[in-house]
């Protein structure tokens, strides 16, 4: 997951490198993803999120659609 100056830069980068356009979203959403995903990583009680829990985090942040589904 990379950070670009704008959607225009994402499009140009994908096109020149032959990389399919995936999903674009705001940096605020990326920060929220980091916060929700890693906030407890130094806790002794940390455990890996289940697919259901992970998909719930994506949905809560507004990252929805097939791209964000962990199972077919």
């Amino acid at each position: 997951m990379l950070a670009f100056r704008s959607e225009e830069h994402v499009g140009r980068w994908c096109e020149t490198r032959g990389i399919p356009h995936g999903a674009s979203f705001s940096l605020e959403q990326a920060w929220e993803l980091g916060r929700r995903w890693y906030g407890d990583k130094l806790s002794p009680d940390w455990r890996r999120a289940t697919p259901d829990e992970a998909e719930r985090v994506f949905t809560d942040i507004g990252l929805t659609g097939d791209f964000w589904r962990l199972r077919a």
Binding site: M1, A3, S6, G22
Partner: peptide
């Protein structure tokens, strides 16, 4: 942030 957008090329699964 002043500007910017995040992009993920690979679907979650």
């Amino acid at each position: 942030v002043d500007d910017g957008v995040a992009h993920f090329a690979v679907p979650a699964r």
